[in-house]
Design a protein around this nucleic acid. Structure first.
Lengths: 145, 145
DNA sequence: TTCGGTGCAAAAGATTTGCATATGT
DNA sequence: ACATATGCAAATCTTTTGCACCGAA
């Protein structure tokens, strides 16, 4: 079964907190895991209602918060003013091409290490971070020359 | 006179765009430049009304947008859901405390270098970037233990 | 005098909460 | 049976807009 790890993680969290495992939570989890990286509550609600029209917006909203608490999702606020939820999978950062809009994921041990040094310097405990490089990808750079 | 450069920049922008130089804009600019780095419209309004109670929230709000257009301020949305405006100065990144909301600025040559390595690796030309570390500041970390 | 600016009130957009009912344990 | 979950409606919170009056150029 797909998403076994996530289901287990949620179940563990639910029983550990004396919370219930409901049909709604199951449906929402499945659709959330199948969605693009950054869904808003509204996005997800629209997808959920196609599959289960009886599920309300509030439940989707509260379930996303639950996922955050359970460590399955991260909340992010972007410049369009919407709160989006990101499926917490292997950490990565982004290169965003301002010409073609392409988004490239990257990972850099060097950056993570340097970041940790900064955190230590300020006595700051980092829980998560966001790092985005905006510019021109190689394709667009070549095209414009 | 303090803030001469900023005043000139604003005046130039205003006349260039056929806009007017008003008392309100002057008051708001002065207080904005004297404020901490990351003020929300509400923050600034509270300070402004102490000095000039007749100035409305809407004017503060619209004036901040004006500052952004004039290149005097940058709009920034952090993950706490508020829009904040920062006086546009030398580049820096942010540490954001998820408990108390404090925002600390930092600069790291190490990170900038590591970032450049990533860019080269992907043939990416970086024009600007955004790097935020979310977590707990030393004060909150100590408090909770 | 003319056109942008201001301030109020109200709209809009998104998130959050209260409450009666439904449901998992 | 009991405590949590759900779904609706309504409240909040923040950002934005409409409009009549004001004021700088």
């Amino acid at each position: 079964m797909k998403y076994e790890a996530e289901r287990t993680q949620l179940s563990t969290y639910l029983s550990g907190m004396g919370l219930k495992h409901t049909k709604q939570r199951d449906v929402i989890l499945t659709i959330f895991l199948d969605s693009d990286d950054h869904v808003s509550a509204e996005d997800l609600y629209q997808r959920v209602r196609k599959k289960s029209p009886s599920i309300g917006y509030t439940t989707v909203y509260r379930t996303l918060k639950l996922f955050v608490d359970a460590g399955l999702a991260q909340e992010h606020r972007f410049d369009d003013g919407l709160t989006r939820y990101e499926n917490e999978h292997a950490h990565h950062d982004h290169l965003v091409c301002l010409d073609c809009g392409k988004i490239i994921e990257f990972n850099s041990e060097l950056i993570e290490d340097a970041q940790e040094k900064v955190a230590v310097e300020y006595g700051f405990k980092v829980l998560h971070h966001r790092h985005e490089l905006y510019g021109r990808c190689s394709d667009c750079e070549n095209k414009s020359q």
